[in-house]
């Protein structure tokens, strides 16, 4: 337990101390909110979709959680290069605990980031229902855990940052664009529909929309079930790959 706690705290400290990182990672969601929100807003309205910022804000919150959590998972590669990873790998504690501590730390940071983006979206004119805020928070935590664990799994297989662009362009970006974060998942071509249905983030976006604006494409029960399963699978995969790291 103490192992999990100390590694969780470490992650939070690192986040809190790197102000440029916090600010930098807020830039993108703010840009998306403003540019897309005001840019596509009128078209969306004309097409009969209603207020676009209402639709967009939950998607952008999910985006910032996705990016932050995958990055947090991938931080293992930095730790490998700076050497700190070795220190934890030889410690007389189970690697499963180490992985859980790191993942919870990364997920907390990502959730925090999501909450900050949520607050910013309020400034941009987002008007959510506040009754289901605890549910929204729970969904944000789930998304964060899923993708931190995924980042951990990937990072456990990588020796350095060379493959990073590849992962960014062929995994993270598609996950984001095919999640329904920017546009509704109705009437899509078959292939894209299948892809978006296999994408855990779709259910995060959907669940969060349900919690915040009471709009739902699938159903809340299905969203939660799918995400819980995905969280378990990725945690399992992540801790398996993490336990096999060699230096």
């Amino acid at each position: 337990m103490k192992t999990i706690y100390i590694l969780w705290i470490r992650q939070l400290k690192r986040y809190y101390r790197s102000k440029p990182r916090i600010i930098g990672s807020l830039g993108q969601p703010v840009l998306f909110l403003v540019a897309l929100g005001f840019g596509f807003g009128p078209i969306y309205q004309k097409a009969g979709g209603g207020d676009y910022i209402q639709f967009l804000a939950p998607g952008i919150i999910c985006m910032s959680i996705l990016f932050t959590s995958v990055f947090s998972g991938i931080e293992i590669i930095w730790d490998r290069q700076f050497g700190f990873l070795k220190e934890t790998l030889v410690a007389p504690v189970s690697r499963f605990h180490i992985m859980i501590g790191r993942t919870l730390g990364g997920a907390s940071v990502a959730t925090l980031q999501g909450v900050i983006v949520f607050s910013i979206s309020l400034l941009a004119g987002f008007k959510p229902y506040l009754i289901a805020l605890p549910l929204a928070l729970f969904i944000m935590v789930l998304i964060a855990v899923i993708f931190t664990a995924l980042g951990t799994a990937i990072a456990s297989l990588m020796e350095d940052m060379h493959g990073f662009q590849l992962i960014m362009n062929f995994l993270i970006m598609p996950l984001f664009f095919l999640s329904g974060a920017l546009f509704p998942l109705d009437g899509l071509p078959r292939a894209i529909e299948i892809a978006s249905r296999a994408n855990p983030l779709s259910y995060g976006v959907d669940g969060l929309r349900f919690a915040l604006i009471n709009v739902c494409h699938f159903s809340l029960a299905f969203d939660l079930t799918f995400m819980l399963l995905a969280a378990l699978i990725f945690l399992g995969l992540g801790s398996y790959l993490f336990s096999r790291i060699q230096i």
């Binding site: 103490k2 100390i6 470490r10 690192r14 050497g83 070795k86 410690a91 007389p92």
Partner: peptide
């Protein structure tokens, strides 16, 4: 080769190690 966490203080590095080693 190095294996400390450079973002943490000297004390925090020691403390973290102490906790990991019970």
């Amino acid at each position: 080769d190095p294996s400390i966490d450079e973002e943490l203080t000297a004390w925090e590095n020691m403390e973290l190690h102490g906790v990991l080693y019970h």
